[in-house]
């Protein structure tokens, strides 16, 4: 089943039960609640995940992280996957 899409207008934040461990490829993300391990497979994506504060929209965070619009679609897909595994949650 495909994850629920994330849009530029959404507001997301790291789930309080999730810890990030930075790695050279990105990061490990571990959810202590559902005990699922996810991989954040790019350092740019990690920068975005860390910048999500639940207040600014996803679009604003992507802009502030310097992600140009040509890469938006791929980042939205990645964020949707992370939301689906509860690494991120909506506010």
């Amino acid at each position: 089943m495909d994850p629920v899409p994330v849009t530029l207008a959404d507001r997301l934040v790291l789930h309080p039960d999730v810890a990030l461990r930075p790695e050279r490829f990105g990061a490990l993300a571990y959810h202590f609640g559902n005990r699922r391990l996810s991989f954040i497979k790019h350092v740019d994506l990690l920068a975005v995940v860390e910048a999500l504060d639940g207040e600014r929209t996803v679009g604003e965070v992507l802009d502030s992280a310097g992600v140009d619009s040509g890469r938006h679609a791929s980042f939205l897909t990645a964020l949707a996957t992370l939301s689906d595994s509860e690494v991120l949650c909506a506010t």
């Binding site: 790695e23 699922r36 497979k41 790019h42 990645a78 992370l82 595994s85």
Partner: peptide, 29 residues
Amino acid sequence: MRPEVVSQPPAATRPLVEEFRLGLDAPIC
């Protein structure tokens, strides 16, 4: 170990398996 390998563009610069083959600073588990 049973990580949920998420398919996640933007594409990684190197496949994750290659990264893991080189070892990490700490074990995953």
